[in-house]
Structures are given as C-alpha cells and as structure tokens.
Simulated scan of single mutants.
Amino acid sequence: MKSTRRMRILLIKPSSMGDVIHALPVVSAIHRHYPDTEIRWLLQPAWRMLVEGNPAISETVLFPRDKFHGPSGWLRAISWLRILGDWKPDMTIDLQGLLRSALFARISGAPRVIGLSDAREGSTLLHGERVKVNRHDHAVTRYLGVLDHLGIPQPQAPEFALPESHLPAGFDTTSPYVVLHPYARGKGKSLDEGMIRAFIRGVTAQSEYRVIIVGRGKPITDFPQNVEDWSNRTDLLELIGILRASSFTVSSDSGPMHLAVALNSSKTLAIHLWSDPLKVGPFFGSSFVWKNGKTSPVSGLDDSWRGIGRPPTHQEMKALGQFAVAKGMN
C-alpha cells in the first residue's frame, strides 16, 4: 500500500529576532512550492509569536535553553532531545550554523541534513549537504540559497509573513508619530540619552509629530510632552502593531529594525555604528541607512559602507529626526 505520509522538514533557526525574520522567506517559498509539506521550526520561546500562525509552519519546536542549566536541566535536556528525534523528519535545514544546531540536526534523525557553507564552530562536519553561499552577502540572500539547492525557484520578492498584531492598551492612534528604537544587544550599537534627546528635538523642530520610543533598555525620564516612552512595556505583537502604524521608524542595528523593514521597508532607517549594513542591515533597497555621517537608500550602498563607523553627533541625530518627519509626510 502506497504511503500517504507528507514530506517533513525541520528548520533550525532558534534565534535571534532578526535572524528569525530573515529566515521567513525560506519557509514561505518552500510552502508555496510544496504546499503539502509539513514544516516545523525549532526556535527559542521568545520568538514563537513571530512564526506561530504562519501558514507555512505546521508546528513550532521550542528550545527552552534557559531550563537546561544544572543537574535537573540535564534531565530535561535529555527528555527534550528524545522528543526532537521522535518526529523523524525527511530533511533538516540548519540555518543557525553553529555546533549545537548541527548536533540538533543530526539528533533529529533526518536522512538529509542541509547547512550553509559559512557555518561556524565546525558544524559543517555534521552537515550531510552544504549549500555554497557568499559570506559577505546579506543574511536573507544567504538563507535563500537553500532554495537553489532544493530546486525551488527564487521568489521575485521575498515574503516576510508576519503575524497579525494589536496595539497596547491605551495607545493613542489619533495623531501621527515616528518611532525611535535606540537599543541593541550588541556592544556599542545602542544610542545614548543625548542622541535620543537630539533626535526628539529634530522631530519637534518642524512638526507636531509624536515620538514613540520602543524596545528593551534602561528607561529615561523627563521627556517632553510629545514623547511617549513605551520601552519595556510591549510584547512582540504590540511592538508589531506600533511599527505597522508608524509614519517612519528610526532604529539602531537590531531585531526590531529588521521587523520594521519587513513591515514597511520604505519607512525605515537603520543607524549603523560599526556593523556592515550590506550584510546585516535592511534587506530592501527602499530602506535607508545612516553610517559615518551619511544617509543613503540601501539601493545606493557600495563596499565603502562596510568599514567601521562612528556614533552620530547630536547635530546628526537632530537631522535624522527632521529626515524622519520629511519621509513620514511623503
């Protein structure tokens, strides 16, 4: 009797927010080409809201790494690893490219284990199939290289299928606003208080736009009346709701920046201090990048933008506030 079992694919991309967002076009393209395929996504619980409900994803496999510490954590880890191998996928795609993710791929028991050529920590030794990518390319481009390996056509426009959202209780939608996300996990990526206040002055100098501050970081007090600090107060779906309705968003190089780009590419500017905007910046050419005192659409970037940068001056942050208002009005 012929088996009716659907093809099963396990995608491993546990973190971080930006990396999970960058992998969304891969699962969308696979689902579009093979709609009957069952795709599960292994990721950390913090990012489950980004993929649960996605029509391409049948189920999430949560990797609660914080619960695996200590002697009792080892027992929980063993139980979790047993569950990982029980599903028996036909193929596992490791987009994380680290030793741990490659081990997970092997433990899954999939006959095909696929990784990228720029994987680290010796993880390529555990990948049965290696997709050749250019390590200088943008993450989205590198991840989409898996499609060529699988014989799936590249999408004309990568699809970032993000969840439905809602605004936090008490959020005012009656007047326009620009969003500032000043925080970042990477060392030296966040904007300091002086830069934040200079940006606010730039917005208020020529408009009645509100400034909405979002993200996770050290709170700042005594803002002007037209500034609302929603930092440390929103979940992911509320953050998506705020970014969706924003007239323009300015962000540090961070996960929420990539979220804003996926939601409204032409209304987002990323501030890059030392990171490479061609590799980890906004993906779409219609977005904007500030680095080393210059602002450009992503479509206008070249290799001269890859080098080490510097923090913006207060005058430059004020100018970025004015830029956000001008673009938000278009």
Rank of each mutant, 00 (worst) to 15 (best):
1 M>V: 04
2 K>H: 11
4 T>F: 14
9 I>S: 09
15 S>N: 15
17 M>A: 09
18 G>V: 04
18 G>H: 07
19 D>P: 11
20 V>R: 00
20 V>K: 03
20 V>H: 03
21 I>Y: 06
25 P>N: 03
35 P>N: 09
37 T>K: 02
38 E>G: 01
40 R>Q: 11
41 W>C: 04
41 W>V: 06
43 L>G: 01
43 L>R: 09
52 E>A: 02
54 N>R: 15
55 P>I: 11
57 I>W: 02
60 T>A: 09
60 T>W: 01
63 F>V: 01
64 P>A: 08
65 R>D: 12
65 R>M: 15
67 K>G: 05
75 L>S: 12
78 I>H: 03
80 W>N: 13
80 W>G: 06
81 L>F: 05
81 L>N: 12
81 L>I: 10
83 I>E: 12
89 P>F: 15
92 T>D: 02
92 T>C: 08
93 I>T: 00
94 D>Q: 02
102 A>Y: 08
104 F>E: 00
104 F>C: 04
106 R>P: 00
110 A>Y: 04
110 A>N: 05
123 S>P: 02
127 H>N: 13
127 H>D: 07
128 G>C: 05
128 G>L: 08
129 E>M: 10
130 R>N: 02
130 R>C: 11
132 K>E: 02
134 N>H: 09
135 R>V: 08
136 H>L: 14
139 A>L: 15
146 V>S: 08
147 L>D: 05
151 G>V: 05
154 Q>L: 15
155 P>C: 07
161 A>D: 08
161 A>K: 12
162 L>E: 08
162 L>Y: 10
163 P>G: 11
164 E>D: 14
166 H>W: 09
172 D>Y: 03
175 S>R: 15
177 Y>C: 06
182 P>F: 15
187 K>N: 13
188 G>N: 14
196 I>T: 14
196 I>R: 01
197 R>M: 12
200 I>S: 12
204 T>H: 14
207 S>V: 15
215 G>P: 03
216 R>K: 15
225 Q>A: 15
229 D>I: 12
230 W>D: 11
230 W>L: 10
231 S>C: 06
235 D>I: 10
237 L>P: 02
239 L>F: 05
242 I>N: 05
243 L>M: 14
243 L>W: 15
245 A>M: 13
249 T>A: 06
249 T>Q: 07
252 S>H: 15
255 G>A: 10
256 P>H: 15
258 H>E: 11
262 A>R: 09
262 A>I: 08
269 L>T: 10
270 A>H: 03
274 W>N: 06
277 P>Q: 11
277 P>H: 13
283 F>V: 00
283 F>T: 01
285 G>F: 03
288 F>R: 02
288 F>Q: 00
291 K>W: 09
293 G>S: 06
293 G>N: 07
294 K>T: 00
295 T>M: 11
306 R>N: 03
306 R>Q: 08
312 P>S: 13
315 Q>W: 00
318 K>A: 14
318 K>G: 08
318 K>P: 02
320 L>Q: 07
326 A>L: 00
326 A>W: 01
329 M>Q: 10
329 M>E: 15
330 N>C: 07
